[in-house]
């Protein structure tokens, strides 16, 4: 079937099988390999992207189901060489070790801060409860998201 999905603001049209999972459409068909493909069982959260602004585990959606929706992947965060505050936060607080869970963590963090610009530690922990970091770097990941929240608020004030 022919399918058009908007990924990071760009319509991508391809001929695919209806059984193709969104994660494979993003990585293999659209060539955006920033989204990681992890457990394949909707447990680990490495494949999280945003659909219409809400986090979605892309291993558990058919690409066909996403036609007509806006998908955002980790590639959408940085713009003209400027990191998104959540990316900067991960850099500042050393919130990644192997980096495998990072794309999903970043997208969950972006969605959280869009909805709740000043989350508590507990709210951050709840938000990432569907994400597994096998290096178990959760403490620094929570700190990174707090860092992003604080610096995003400061940036907005400057403007």
């Amino acid at each position: 079937m022919q399918l058009t999905i908007n990924i990071n603001g760009k319509p991508i049209t391809r001929e695919v099988e209806p059984r193709q999972l969104l994660v494979h459409f993003i990585r293999d068909t659209a060539g955006l390999t920033g989204t990681h493909w992890g457990c394949d069982t909707s447990n680990c959260g490495a494949c999280v992207v945003l659909m219409d602004g809400r986090p979605l585990k892309s291993c558990t959606a058919l690409a066909a189901m996403c036609e007509g929706h806006e998908i955002q992947t980790v590639e959408s965060l940085e713009s003209s060489g400027r990191l998104d505050p959540v990316q900067q936060g991960f850099h500042e607080t050393h919130a990644l070790h192997c980096g495998f869970c990072t794309p999903g963590m970043l997208m969950i963090a972006r969605a959280l801060l869009n909805e709740n610009p000043n989350p508590t530690e507990q709210e951050i922990r709840t938000a990432i409860s569907g994400q597994i970091c096998r290096c178990t770097g959760y403490k620094n990941i929570v700190a990174a998201i707090r860092w992003a929240a604080e610096h995003e608020a400061a940036t907005k004030q400057e403007v």
Binding site: G45, P55, L56, T60
Partner: peptide
Amino acid sequence: IADPPVRNR
């Protein structure tokens, strides 16, 4: 029930 991304769907 499940986790936030799963609850979204």
